Amino acid sequence: MQTTTFSLRVAPVALALAAATVPAAANVRLAPHRAVYELALSENRGGSGVDQVRGRIVYEFKGDACDGYALTFRQVTEIASGEGQSNRSDLRSETWEDGAGKSFRFSAKNFLNDELNRDTDGKAEKGAEAVKVLLKKPKAGESAFEAGTLFPTEHLVKIIESAQRSDTLLAAPVYDGSEAGDKTYDTLTVIGKKADTPPPSLEEPAKKPELEKQDYWPVAVSYFERGKKLTGEQTPDYQMSFDLYANGVSRDLRINYGSFVLTGALKELEFLKPGKCER
């Protein structure tokens, strides 16, 4: 992960910053919502050249298992070094995933200091033997990944299902179209014990009736370059941790890039009109 792009994967994760098989959708109902997170530098472990960070994530999730899931995501991050230099990254992405987790469309633009740095556009289809990716940008081409690879919302649902079963670990390859759209990631999710009471640090926007009766779990998702072994000694490319509610809403983000760590505080939360399946 390049520190100048900070492109979050929305297997939220949090977001983790997002479609499930049809049977899974009957047990996990993701809530359409718009969330805004404020980013800040939490830890600087040396060697990163990062002195200050400020930024914001806007995450809008719509749809359901009937019509598919649409995600609009934007992250603007300003990074300052101790030498007085600063860079501004502006990542804008849109994805759509069908309710059966078989089809995925994605497009993203990343601007660095207001200049287009990367433009990605493509789609992926899951077959019996492979996940086939057709890229239009940044370079037209085709690639294939193993059939068990998950798309982002499908991954999110499987995390919630695992949490509801009181499983503590979930390992899965994930394709989200990030970077140049030409790679997958091995992920390892660690799921904590279901929380019985609201945390004392609960942000004001999270004090909503839609969340009061929702179970939630502390979750940490580590992303590894595909092909590296998932062992206790393996260092992930980066890690995201957050509180994950049973309806897919996330709060209290922590994004660990190795040499430095960002936090994401929930500043706004709006629940949107339910999809066709829920109406």
Rank of each mutant, 00 (worst) to 15 (best):
F6M: 15
A11V: 06
A11S: 11
V13W: 05
A16E: 07
L17C: 11
V22Q: 15
P23R: 15
P23H: 14
N27Y: 02
N27V: 05
N27D: 09
V28Q: 05
P32F: 00
R34M: 08
A35N: 04
Y37I: 05
L39R: 07
L41N: 06
S48E: 04
S48W: 01
G49S: 06
G49Y: 06
G49R: 01
V50I: 10
V53Q: 05
G55S: 06
G55K: 01
R56C: 07
R56V: 12
Y59I: 00
E60K: 08
E60R: 13
F61D: 00
K62L: 13
K62T: 14
G63Y: 00
A65N: 09
D67L: 01
Y69L: 00
T72S: 12
V76W: 06
E78V: 15
A80N: 04
E83V: 05
G84W: 13
Q85A: 14
S89P: 05
D90A: 06
D90G: 08
R92S: 09
R92I: 08
S93E: 03
T95N: 10
G99E: 00
F104E: 01
A108H: 04
K109R: 14
N110T: 11
F111R: 12
L112Q: 11
L112M: 12
L112P: 02
L112S: 09
N113Y: 06
D114H: 13
L116Y: 05
D119G: 06
T120F: 12
D121M: 11
A124V: 04
A130H: 13
V131Y: 08
K132P: 06
V133I: 14
V133Y: 04
K137N: 12
K139D: 12
K139Y: 07
S143W: 01
S143D: 10
F145Y: 09
A147W: 06
T149Y: 05
F151C: 04
P152F: 00
P152H: 01
L156Q: 07
V157L: 04
E161T: 02
Q164R: 15
R165P: 09
L169A: 06
A171R: 14
D176F: 03
E179G: 09
E179P: 03
E179L: 11
A180G: 05
G181F: 08
K183T: 12
D186V: 00
D186E: 14
T187H: 06
T189S: 12
K194G: 14
K194T: 14
A195E: 14
E203M: 10
K207L: 13
P209C: 04
E210P: 11
L211K: 02
L211N: 03
K213Y: 05
D215Q: 13
D215V: 04
P218T: 01
P218K: 02
P218M: 01
V219D: 03
A220H: 10
V221T: 12
F224H: 01
E225T: 10
K229C: 09
K229Q: 15
G232E: 14
E233A: 14
T235W: 05
T235P: 05
Y238W: 13
M240K: 05
M240A: 14
F242C: 10
D243G: 04
L244Y: 09
L244W: 07
V249H: 02
I255S: 03
S259C: 02
G264Q: 04
E268Q: 13
L269S: 08
L269I: 07
L269Y: 10
E270V: 11
F271P: 11
G275Q: 00
